[in-house]
Design a protein around this nucleic acid. Sequence first.
DNA 1: AGACAACTACGAAATCTTTAGTAGCATACT
DNA 2: AGTATGCTACTAAAGATTTCGTAGTTGTCT
Lengths: 131, 131
Amino acid sequence: MKKRKQAAGRLTDLELEIMNVIWELGETTISEVNQILGETSKKHAYTTTATMMKILEKKKFLKSKKKERAHKYTPSVTKDIYEGNAINHIVDNVFEGASAKLVMKLLDDTKLNREELIEIRKTLESRIEDE
Amino acid sequence: MKKRKQAAGRLTDLELEIMNVIWELGETTISEVNQILGETSKKHAYTTTATMMKILEKKKFLKSKKKERAHKYTPSVTKDIYEGNAINHIVDNVFEGASAKLVMKLLDDTKLNREELIEIRKTLESRIEDE
DNA sequence: AGACAACTACGAAATCTTTAGTAGCATACT
DNA sequence: AGTATGCTACTAAAGATTTCGTAGTTGTCT
């Protein structure tokens, strides 16, 4: 029984980049992922992508099945779940659990346009009524 | 000229834990940090804490000056700046730049109480008026 | 069947992170 | 002055991450 040091369910930068591609594509193959990675960010050796996807499988982020020539990989963690994990991590470790503080900082972020702000207000209002 | 792989300004878990202690304390020493770390989370060898703080100095998160017996360390990056970096990272890499989506998920977070929600609304309103 | 292409498995090197030991220096104490 | 104490510097080792090569397998095409 080996102790895991890295909090289960966290991804390194490259792992995340690969998962983002796969969440986009759904069921896919190593070569497809490798190709898209090469187009959209950085070109890697085929085997690099293969290794990373095997690691992601070991970490239970992907599952694979043999199908025709190439193995087909599918996510076994949804993007939504992962987003939640990532949020928890930053809230707990950077904002001492105060998610409100994180929201505030995001509101100060000028990248939010009027429509988004209004959409947020709508969600917020219904959230307040629920209390 | 060596290329940095790790995006400048990101911290590992332990580094962050140490910076959190130092942001709290302000000017401090290795042994003080080591002691607080031992009380609040996990006990480390003195030299482990020393090494980590030296790394943080190399990464320009801390600066030190000799003073009396022990070196005094002070943050050279504010917590506020670091929070901004952390937010940018998660927004860019997990939420494809859509900070509004992150805000939405945070609002669904039941950990926000009524007061916080109302405070958020206040900030949001003034933010909308500014547009 | 033989040659070729695509794919996987295995493993290993390079770098980064985490952990801590050892030695040496400086201050304090007697 | 000599010894103990506390601190730093240097070093190293174990584990994690990132990168990719080599070898071998399987399917395809003539």
